[in-house]
Design a protein around this nucleic acid. Structure first.
Lengths: 117, 117
DNA sequence: AACCGATATGTCGAGTAGTGCATAACCAAA
DNA sequence: TTTGGTTATGCACTACTCGACATATCGGTT
């Protein structure tokens, strides 16, 4: 009896660009919502600020939708928060991803499990 | 109305190794079955023989199951063919993957489509 | 006006996956 | 026994991603 773990990656692409939205960017948006700033979000996710910033930029450009409102300066230096659009995206993708997660588990049981026991 | 394409990657891991079986290795086995040799399979898939060989080796080691029978030498130089086990794996993973493919399409329609139209 | 901490962006280097040789080893058939 | 085409495997080089730095900019508070 082998012990396997199922793994999957999920993302969206357009004709022009690959990976415009996916697990990483989804986590980033969630973290921004929770932390209130891009810097704090990146630290919370243990990724570099440079990467978080780049991911966010790509997302915004490709989706062409204002997902976050950023502010520079101020006593706190600045902040980043999700727009309504951004929150909708997080919610939608969460549902999307959850469904797939369940489907993967179910399909594994159906097709693979018997094979490896 | 944006045009998105859903993308996903699917694979299996063990406690010891990541990616012991997945789309790439699945395609490799299928191609071996169709072509009759590792070399032809790699060419058919447009990957280097080096990689195909490495992938196959890893798969065999981690699954610890004889997926293919290889033969060196002979008039044709050698050949590689799937074992019964190998065929079963291909079949099982095909079903597994197909289910996920459908689930992704369905979940996309359910969760994302309305958001981007 | 000075300050402080976050956003904004380029660059260089490290780590990694994959490709391209190069070279054995193998063995049925001619 | 020579040959040919494949399996087998190491190694150097390449391409790409990401992280670490460095630096500039911004603007509400003090």
């Amino acid at each position: 009896m082998k012990e396997f773990r199922t793994r999957f990656k999920l993302w969206l692409s357009t004709k022009d660009a690959e990976g415009v939205f996916g697990d990483g960017k989804w986590r980033l948006l969630k973290s921004i919502d929770a932390e209130g700033s891009l810097k704090a979000a990146s630290q919370s996710l243990h990724i570099s600020y440079r990467k978080a910033w780049g991911d966010l930029k790509k997302m915004q450009q490709c989706l062409n939708v204002p997902l976050v409102k950023k502010q520079r300066g101020g006593a706190l230096g600045g902040q980043t928060a999700l727009t309504e659009q951004g929150k909708k995206w997080v919610k939608a993708y969460t549902g999307f991803r959850t469904d797939i997660e369940k489907a993967v588990e179910k399909a594994y049981k159906k097709h693979i499990e018997e094979l490896v026991k």
